[in-house]
Design a binder for these strands. Structure first.
Lengths: 184, 184
DNA sequence: TACATTTCTTGATTTGGATCAAGTGCAGGA
DNA sequence: TCCTGCACTTGATCCAAATCAAGAAATGTA
């Protein structure tokens, strides 16, 4: 049940057996169907979620009836809206399940309680950085951005429609199509 | 001496008088001359700094002997390398004083000790977000990026050479020059 | 002061990626 | 089975910003 999440947590914090069960005791499983929203714009992101199965897309609606994809999440990723979760203010973005999915979630209050009990939980804070993209890569040309995604997060390319990947990489679907043709 | 930093801290955390003096007791003043490096590439950023006077530029050297500016800091800003500070790994970037400057710094160990003593310091963690740029704005055209900087951080435009501002905004100096001509 | 260097501006040209447009292939539904 | 609607590809055109180039203005320095 908790194997994957424990192995992920272990990468960030050295928890004792007791601390680990304190942690897992607070986890709640949540099932989502394809298309369901894990987080809506205007709502505060109060849950910190680990993807057990399925995948998610974080996006915001831009002016012209189009959506801009900010991040994509697959199994074993932590999914949340960094801005809303850390500031506990209304989210500007949506997070949507792109397949039938299951997450394990812990509330921000639960997290705070744990951190209050033991310094050992501090490391977990670093998981928050997963919600951030490296700004430097944004400055590279389209082909490099795609190649980098291929090497760093190959599962993304398998799971998601290319139009989402294009938006995530900040290019049009046409450009992504040409990049893929070129490097193949 | 500590007026500005206390007023900044108060925006993030509700500290008692005692907690505040615990905090200020750990502060160390550091003077830098124009051109001095506050942080070098390859070094771990172990200090969390508040700018009392002067200004700073965070940048990294890209392939072709050019430097890319990631962030600019002025008085009352908190200056640090987000990635290096939060991960406590070697920095990929430099931070350089662009004028004779003074910072007040607290070590990461000092911060951890304080946080261990009182939950009240938690809010300080949000200061870390100042080191982050909003990814959405990067997707806007050059003119909008400049106008946004003008309204959100007008001091930046006064303090720094335009070539740094151009790099920070992800455009060439020529483009910035034309944007400025157009809107004036 | 004059000279050197760097920063900024302005104009001409180029170009990478967006946009526009058309066609293909595939999945889901009647 | 045939539609219908997406997702994706491919080609043609366009355009915003980069690049290239030359001066002007500002800054530093002997």
């Amino acid at each position: 049940m908790f194997d994957e999440i424990i192995s992920s947590v272990n990468q960030y914090a050295r928890l004792t057996e007791e601390e680990l069960s304190e942690f897992t005791n607070r986890l709640v499983s949540r099932q989502l169907s394809k298309g369901d929203l894990l987080l809506e714009k205007g709502v505060i992101n109060r849950e910190f979620c680990f993807v057990r199965s399925g995948c998610f897309r974080q996006y915001y609606p831009s002016k012209e009836y189009e959506e801009i994809t900010l991040n994509l999440f697959v199994a074993d990723d932590w999914v949340f809206d960094h801005q809303s979760f850390t500031s506990q203010k209304a989210s500007e973005n949506f997070i949507q399940a792109c397949e039938d999915s299951e997450v394990l979630s812990i509330s921000i209050h639960g997290l705070h309680e744990l951190i209050g009990k033991s310094q050992a939980y501090f490391g977990l804070g670093r998981i928050l950085e997963n919600g951030l993209k490296d700004e430097k890569t944004n400055r590279n040309p389209p082909e490099e951005r795609y190649l980098r995604l291929m090497t760093e997060r190959p599962q993304i390319i398998q799971k998601f429609p290319l139009k989402y990947i294009a938006s995530y990489l900040g290019m049009t679907p046409e450009t992504l199509s040409r990049v893929r043709k070129k490097i193949s």
